[in-house]
Design a protein around this nucleic acid. Structure first.
Length: 572
DNA sequence: GCCGTTTTCGGCCCGACTGTTTTCAGTCG
């Protein structure tokens, strides 16, 4: 799968370079689209290429197929080299800075010689950026803010990148050492939305050999360290991965120790101290005597505690509850019966309803909610009433043919007054109405969301805070007030599982749970590969202490249908 | 660049917001 990521990165950079150069915007979109498709593709592009089926993937046409072919044959792509020839690589990275687009960057590059983050900071500070034509105090201020967010984020790796990467490495190692215990550790195992570094733990009495194997992973770019107990690599996509090897009898203790969080571990060690015990990555000791450490269960059991799921280990009260035997029974990954938010090619999704339905069935889902954009989402090819009706016919046909329940949903646009895209009469005809706000405005959206809660046809509010983890904080909205109102009106709130959103966040989702608000977990998939992102949302839900009953899509299709019909009965 | 039950050429991505302007350019979704 490594080639998928490599190609995705190349196409994304070509897209950026063309944007910088002011190329045809549709061409740029085509490159970005294929980058996304490749990044999320569940199959290995190399296999598809070998089978001669590149062109069957939506987004890959004659031109891009040729480029993929060239790259897989020669390891190079002449188009990439050509467009990158006269652009410094660091410059393109700056395009990810919020409020700094290709035009401004080009201007800064040509007039002020800005090539790096440091250059940019300098021309912000010395006022020369502000003096350029079309620039001014506020624009520069926004770019400065964007740069700060970007700088703060660049060190952290999204779980959407980190988890698949770690799984590729763990699978590779397990292939070589089938009988050895191997696991991701650190904040990644706790399913945190971003992680600082990637840790993998191995339980093996002799580490040298497996560390050697680790450094031969196909995606390795550079080996930083290679010893008896620790190996460290940088992979081609730029992330650093550390591998630690501990003796088998210490595996559980080490896994517990390296999984964290730090705060959780400190609390556990404090308890240990009170009982004259010592906990370290090597085990639990009384004096010099080893009493536990082979498994995590064993370690927790020493303190009379049940095993605590990694997602709960944040010292948010979980240890106290565990001591009382009152740990919440958080939702299991296999308790999710369907995906609540999926886009098809009726709006800006890449795949047909049929393809989505078949893949969802493969995933073992009982149902999915197709929720495409509504008409005023022009950028996303939003649907008007006519196209919606056409879609309904297709849904009925596909559902019957594939044998999966498909709910007729809509991700309906909310305007600045809190009105929706369709009439109340028309909204009433959908199975599931997910209301969403997508504009970049500074106005306080709290009253708008409250109004939406009171709309009897709105079942769910999508990504309620509007944050994009790598880019922006989110809307101006008092989320506590919205949760309060959602609770009063029985409106569900979404955990959007797309890894750059994860919105509601774990903290906000927990607040919602505490107020009795139902949570809907949706992948917001724009192609079938993205259906796999749902697990990030489930991980987030687990971090939020959500139990089966807090979540809409643990309901069976029948139960969900019933909930949809009755949950707003008290609102007229 | 891709795509095709109007099309192998011409549509796809358009509107809103912000900040700079005094009619528009850049950015965003």
């Amino acid at each position: 799968m490594a080639k998928n990521q490599e190609l995705a990165k190349l196409f994304e950079e070509i897209g950026k370079a063309l944007e910088f150069k002011g190329e045809n915007q549709f061409k740029i979109i085509a490159y970005y689209k294929v980058a996304r498709v490749l990044r999320d593709l569940p199959q290995d592009i190399e296999q598809i290429w070998k089978a001669g089926k590149l062109r069957e993937i939506p987004g890959i046409g004659e031109g891009i197929a040729k480029k993929i072919d060239e790259y897989l044959k020669t390891g190079r792509m002449s188009k990439y080299e050509e467009v990158m020839k006269d652009i410094p690589k660091e410059l393109l990275e700056l395009m990810d800075v919020q409020s700094l687009g290709p035009r401004t960057l080009k201007l800064a590059y040509e007039r002020l010689g800005v090539k790096t983050k440091e250059d940019l900071l300098r021309v912000i500070e010395n006022g020369s950026l502000e003096k350029l034509p079309g620039m001014g105090k506020k624009k520069v201020e926004n770019i400065k803010k964007g740069l700060e967010i970007w700088k703060g984020q660049e060190e952290r790796i999204s779980i959407g990148i980190a988890l698949p990467l770690v799984e590729r490495i763990v699978n590779y190692l397990k292939g070589e050492y089938p009988d050895v215990q191997i696991s991701p550790a650190g904040s990644l195992r706790r399913m945190k939305e971003t992680v600082g570094d990637i840790d993998i733990l191995v339980g093996k009495d002799n580490g040298k050999e497996i560390i050697e194997t680790f450094t031969k992973f196909e995606e390795v770019e550079r080996i930083l360290a290679k010893g008896d107990t620790k190996g460290s690599i940088i992979v081609k996509s730029g992330e650093q991965v550390d591998l630690r090897v501990v003796p088998i009898q210490s595996y559980g203790a080490a896994l517990q120790y390296f999984t964290g969080s730090k705060a959780h571990n400190i609390k556990l060690r404090t308890i240990a101290k009170g009982e004259n015990l010592k906990v370290s990555e090597y085990g639990v000791f009384r004096g010099d005597k080893f009493i536990a450490g082979r498994t995590e269960e064993e370690v927790y059991a020493v303190f009379g505690l049940p095993w605590i799921p990694p997602e709960l280990r944040e010292d948010r009260g979980e240890i106290e509850l565990a001591m009382k035997g009152q740990l919440p029974k958080i939702v299991e990954y296999n308790e999710i019966k369907g995906d609540m938010h999926v886009h098809s090619n009726y709006s800006d999704g890449a795949d047909t309803i049929e393809k989505i339905a078949k893949y969802a069935k493969e995933l073992g889902y009982e149902y999915i909610v197709i929720a495409d954009h509504s008409k005023s989402a022009k950028y996303a090819h939003g649907m008007d009433e006519e196209r919606v009706k056409k879609q309904w016919e297709e849904i009925d046909r596909v559902a019957k043919q594939v044998g999966i329940k498909i709910f007729k949903g809509i991700e309906v646009e909310i305007d600045r007054e809190g009105n929706l895209d369709f009439s109340q009469e028309f909204l009433a005809k959908f199975d599931v109405v997910i209301a969403a706000f997508h504009r970049a405005v500074k106005q306080d959206l709290t009253p708008i969301f409250i109004k939406v809660c009171h709309n009897p046809h709105v079942d769910i509010i999508a990504h309620p805070t509007g944050r994009l983890i790598s880019q922006r904080a989110g809307y101006t909205v008092d989320i506590d007030r919205v949760i309060e109102e959602a609770s009063k009106t029985n409106t569900a709130l979404e955990i959007n599982a797309y890894y750059d959103r994860l919105d509601l966040s774990d903290i906000n989702a927990k607040k919602a749970k505490d107020k009795g608000v139902k949570i809907s977990i949706g992948s917001d998939a724009h192609n079938v590969g993205m259906l796999n992102y749902l697990r990030f949302g489930i991980g987030n839900a687990r971090r939020a202490w959500l139990e089966k009953d807090d979540i809409l899509n643990t309901l069976s299709a029948k139960e969900l249908e019933n909930w949809l019909k009755t949950h707003k009965a008290h609102i007229s």
